[in-house]
Amino acid sequence: MNISEDTRTRVTLNEHGVDNVHSTDFPGEYPDFDDAWDFKKFKKNFRIDMIKMNDDELEFDMVGIDAAIANAFRRILLAEVPTMAIEKVHIYNNTSIIQDEVLAHRLGLIPIKADPRLFEYKSEGEDFSPEDTIIFQLKVKCTKNSQAKDTTDPDEMYKDHKVTTKHLKWIPMKGQDTIFKEGDLRPVNDDILIAKLRPGQEIDIRVFCNKGIGKDHAKFSPVATASYRLLPEIYLKSPVTGALAEKLQSCFSPGVIVIDTENGNKVARVANARKDTCSREVFRHDNLKDLVELKKVRDHFIFSVESTGILPPDILVEEAIKVLMKKCQDFILN
């Protein structure tokens, strides 16, 4: 790879700093290279590879795109994909140890399994309506367990001493019961601890969920986190053999370097640079330092989206793309 190619497409990790972090693909930046944006070229280079997906997590590669766009997706996932979350709490009775405001704050952070696309934003100053609000009731009273004897374990001594999300009961608003079935609207997890009670203490609360975005409050963020990293690349400038090869292997995450045996000689080979965590351990060893180059591919983003469970992660990405498209449209139209 020639030098200009290298600075154009790779981020270099040195011992004490990172080089070529900024993208330079502007027209006329390099004399022998036309960097003007071209749709055809983009179409040819751009690709998305799904790597791993389950209910909550998604890992995919987005290749051939500028950092600004990739970052936009990340930012939108964090802050602008709407979800439903508890916004108003009406406290009728709270004799528990936990303060009303703290209780309300805790409730707010509970992820609510409700498709936000089926709801509308509640406008300021208007009453709750079935189109924009979900109501839950939390009514728990702790009592003594008369059967329990000779125990100091609160689980046995008291009934309902742990208020968890399973105690949240959906109260359908007018007409909501025709659209949603029992179990459609519920907290994502039913084992989140909200408060602890002791006999005689009681919580009687009605909570109101609204649609919102993560920008306003982190509780509306649909992801636990969404981020990306660049694809690492490791080059061995010269063959690394013998004990040095083993040392090299130990400097990287497991699976990055494999050791082949060629004519009884141990030779290190980069097997899967993707697995590397960029701990830059090689640079601590003077005899390995100069044998290795660490790089990252500038336009290869390994996205990782961890959903809170409200929506599947692939839908979240889809939604994020829609938000970005809407933004672009708004921008063009105005």
Binding site: V11, H16, G17, V18, V21, A67, A70
Partner: peptide, 8 residues
């Protein structure tokens, strides 16, 4: 910016 920082 979405780009890496120049320093660790």
């Amino acid at each position: 910016t979405g780009e890496p920082l120049e320093a660790y």
